[in-house]
Nucleic acid binder design. Structure first.
Lengths: 121, 121
DNA sequence: TATTGTTATACTCTATAACTATA
DNA sequence: TATAGTTATAGAGTATAACAATA
């Protein structure tokens, strides 16, 4: 299933981790670099190369934060928004395939069970 | 959940992949090295270091196969059986924790849904 | 003192190509 | 020709320590 996701994004030259960054930054523009990393469970040391690559490709950009010269705020470029939209479309196709396999209500039942696994205690 | 498994085996100095090898070889002694690798979805090139480590620790051993001098048959040593038994006990504890989180019948429902995800088509 | 971004480094898992010795 | 085991190598992903700039 994860390989299916990887193949699906490969045509956009996007790794799953890169897609998750685009999705978070697209949904909440202006978040600090380390906040995005934390939201995705990525350590900030490892996040640097990730955001570097997206910035080099012109999909995301760092911008200065007023009142805190240590931080960068992250935004998508117009091209980044376009790539994110195309990736979302592909993700929807993968999800539809999953739903077809799981049957009606299957996804909700699966997510409910998986949430319990993550519950603390 | 996977981190829980890793922590649980760490006290036996066993990685999840090593445990899976012990489990397969313990359950079906005499399988060829490449059959065990294939059964676990591990490429034979990467399996070499894995089985080397288990053999060096005295948990598993390679033995000659009659009529095919290319192959090795894999078996557990007495110590390997003991470590496997202790690992199985720890795995049972982890499983009990999972069952407690999932509730009655939860595991069966979860496995049923996951099996559908793996179904071809 | 603590935090942000960064670099360097190391370890695990995985993937591929190529070799050898057998079949 | 094909297969079993092996070696070498490279790429991701991830983890920790340490540093400079800033708070």
């Amino acid at each position: 299933m994860f390989d299916d996701v990887i193949r699906s994004f490969a045509e956009l030259d996007l790794r799953p981790g890169q897609y998750s960054v685009l999705a978070v930054v697209g949904h909440r523009p202006g978040l600090k670099q380390s906040s995005v990393a934390a939201a995705l469970g990525i350590q900030r040391a490892n996040f640097v190369a990730l955001i570097n690559a997206l910035e080099r490709r012109g999909l995301a950009r760092r911008s200065a934060v007023p009142n805190d010269r240590r931080s960068y705020a992250l935004h998508l470029t117009a091209e980044g928004e376009r790539v994110l939209a195309r990736a979302n479309a592909r993700a929807a196709v993968v999800e539809a395939r999953l739903d077809a396999k799981l049957g009606p209500g299957g996804r909700a039942r699966l997510l409910s069970l998986l949430r319990r696994l993550g519950a603390h205690g």
